Lab assay of single mutants.
Amino acid sequence: MGQARALMGLSAQLDEELDFREGDVITIIGVPEPGWFEGELEGRRGIFPEGFVELLGPL
């Protein structure tokens, strides 16, 4: 779908969440519900709030 750069780090609180560090580039693979993305980073998949990232182009 597209890519996004992390504006800040996120520590996953639930198993389905993706954790990442500020500056990581995450591949967006879905939008499971409004306000959330599903992404992949370094072979890991999970969901995260859209406010933690900036899109690097259209989805």
Rank of each mutant, 00 (worst) to 15 (best):
L56A: 06
V53K: 04
G51T: 13
M8E: 11
F20A: 04
E17G: 12
L18Q: 07
R5Y: 07
G39A: 04
V31I: 14
A6V: 06
P58G: 10
G9M: 03
D15S: 11
E22G: 06
G39M: 03
A12S: 15
L7M: 12
W36G: 04
E40G: 05
D19I: 04
L56R: 08
D19S: 15
E38L: 15
D19K: 12
A6P: 03
R44S: 07
L55T: 08
M1N: 02
A12K: 13
S11P: 09
M8G: 08
E42Q: 11
V25F: 07
M1H: 08
D19Y: 11
E22T: 12
A6D: 00
G2P: 07
G57H: 10
D24S: 03
V25N: 05
F52S: 14
Q3K: 14
I28V: 10
G57R: 11
V53L: 04
E38Y: 13
L10Q: 15
G43R: 02
L56G: 05
G2Q: 10
L55E: 06
F48V: 08
E22S: 10
E54L: 09
I47W: 07
E17P: 00
V25K: 09
W36K: 11
L59H: 14
G23Y: 03
V25S: 04
E50W: 09
A6T: 00
P49N: 08
R5Q: 06
A6N: 02
E42M: 14
G51E: 11
F37E: 01
W36P: 05
A12L: 03
V31H: 12
G43F: 02
I28C: 02
E42Y: 10
L10F: 15
G30R: 13
L55R: 05
V31W: 00
G9L: 05
V25W: 06
I28S: 12
F52R: 08
M1T: 05
R5K: 08
L18M: 01
G9T: 15
L59A: 08
P32C: 02
A12T: 15
Q3T: 14
G9A: 14
G46S: 03
E17N: 09
F37C: 03
T27M: 05
I26D: 04
F20N: 01
I28R: 02
E17T: 11
V31D: 06
F52N: 11
Q3H: 07
L59G: 11
R5I: 11
M1I: 14
Q13S: 14
V53I: 04
G35Q: 02
F52E: 07
G2W: 11
R5H: 04
M1F: 10
F20L: 05
G57F: 08
G51F: 14
V31E: 10
E38H: 08
A6K: 04
E33V: 02
V25C: 08
L18G: 02
R44D: 02
P34W: 00
E38A: 10
G46A: 00
E54C: 08
L59K: 11
L41K: 09
E40F: 08
L59I: 09
R5D: 02
L14I: 14
G43V: 00
P49E: 07
I47A: 09
P49Y: 02
L14W: 10
I29F: 07
G23M: 00
S11K: 11
P32K: 11
I29L: 13
E16W: 10
I47H: 05
A12H: 06
G43N: 08
S11W: 06
D24G: 03
Q13E: 15
F20C: 04
P34G: 03
R21A: 12
G57Y: 11
G23I: 01
E42K: 11
L59Q: 14
L14D: 15
A6L: 04
V53D: 02
E16H: 13
L41N: 06
R45C: 10
P49T: 03
P32Q: 02
F20W: 03
E54I: 06
F48H: 00
A4M: 01
E22C: 10
R45P: 00
M8Q: 15
Q3C: 10
L7Y: 04
S11F: 09
F20T: 00
L56S: 07
V25A: 07
E50I: 08
L55G: 02
A4T: 02
E22L: 08
G2R: 08
A4P: 04
L7P: 02
I26C: 00
S11I: 13
E22Q: 12
P58D: 13
E38F: 11
F37Y: 14
I29G: 08
E33Y: 08
E54N: 05
E50T: 10
L59W: 08
M8R: 15
D19M: 15
D24Y: 03
I29W: 06
G43T: 07
R45E: 07
I28D: 01
E50M: 09
G57A: 13
G30V: 00
E54M: 05
R5L: 09
P49L: 04
E17Q: 13
L59C: 07
I47R: 15
G39W: 04
G51H: 15
L18C: 03
